[in-house]
């Protein structure tokens, strides 16, 4: 078990940012908004979460800032898409560029400033301590991982059992009919945007205030896109999406753990694994009964 235990623990760790981002994206997509900018939202959360944790010395403040930063970027998306009726995919791509630029610029500026102060240029932030180390390697996870796992049943309950969730799904399936039946479509979608931004931001923040203690440019490295794929793969359901996230989390940990087994596999081949598996998984699920909201991507 000395191989399996750390592997499973790493799978949970790698799945955490995906889970958070995918749950946010799920809410948003069920409401009919597609956010390609999820990658940017996560990157924003990763950087500003790290920055705040470093400045205040408290990972909790960092997590709050990550959520706030994610929500801020998602609010831009909401403004562009809901008010100005701009194309969702293009706005999302623009947000990714903005996030890459803003976080990269701030990070370089911060490092330059620290160098001028004669301090180490690579600051490290305080991180969450693992909770419940008594549970062994698998249970030795930080607060954010537990929160991510808890988010799945919450989102499921919200979408499938609550009145608000029903309204949101109505908005996603047929915005015009929802509006006619008295639901405020824009307000409903705006709230979904904020929720998705907070979850995605926290997912990004996990990378810098829980998994690593520092920020590297473009640290999210396509995880947002993988989360996006997880929602499609999970057929727009909470449990399915969560399953897909854990599957991709395992693919990410396979990259790190196969090395240890001494198998002769090139690390690059393993690094491609999550993305290739995403493509393969999408190709082998029937898209016809995908469960995608009928109003997805439509203003």
């Amino acid at each position: 078990m000395d191989f399996l235990d750390p592997f499973l623990a790493a799978t949970l760790r790698n799945a955490t940012p995906l889970l958070l981002a995918a749950m946010g994206e799920l809410i948003l997509e069920r409401g009919g908004v597609l956010n390609i900018g999820i990658e940017g939202v996560m990157l924003f959360g990763a950087f500003f979460g790290f920055l705040t944790a470093w400045a205040t010395g408290s990972p909790t403040c960092g997590a709050a800032a990550a959520m706030l930063a994610g929500a801020l970027l998602a609010a831009v998306l909401a403004g562009m898409v809901l008010r100005l009726k701009a194309d969702q995919i293009v706005v999302g791509m623009a947000l990714n560029l903005v996030a890459l630029g803003v976080t990269g610029t701030f990070n370089s500026a911060l490092q330059g400033w620290l160098r001028r102060q004669g301090r180490p240029a690579q600051p490290s932030a305080p991180i969450f301590e693992p909770l419940l180390p008594a549970l062994g390697a698998l249970g030795n996870q930080t607060l954010i991982t537990w929160a991510a796992l808890l988010a799945v049943p919450c989102v499921w309950y919200y979408l499938n059992r609550s009145e608000r969730g029903l309204e949101l799904r109505a908005v996603g399936e047929n915005p015009a009919a929802a509006e006619a039946s008295g639901i405020h479509v824009a307000a409903c979608r705006f709230k979904a945007c904020l929720a998705a931004g907070m979850l995605g931001g926290l997912g990004g923040g996990f990378l810098t205030i829980s998994q690593a203690a520092s920020f590297a440019p473009n640290t999210t490295n396509g995880r947002g896109f993988v989360a996006l794929a997880a929602v499609v793969l999970g057929r727009y359901g909470a449990w399915g999406s969560a399953g897909a996230c854990v599957f991709f989390g395992a693919a990410f940990s396979a990259r790190d753990h196969f090395q240890a087994t001494g198998l002769k596999v090139h690390p690059e081949v393993l690094a491609m694994l999550p993305y290739l598996l995403t493509l393969a998984a999408l190709a082998f699920t029937l898209q016809k009964r995908s469960g995608a909201p009928a109003g997805l991507g439509k203003p």
Partner: peptide
């Protein structure tokens, strides 16, 4: 001048958003 080059991505993203905000549709 020590201005980070990454700023170019932020400008590009902002330019796209500005264009979309002005109602340039595809």
């Amino acid at each position: 001048a020590g201005v980070p080059h990454e700023v170019v991505y932020a400008i590009q993203g902002a330019v796209i958003l500005l264009l979309l905000a002005r109602g340039v549709h595809l």
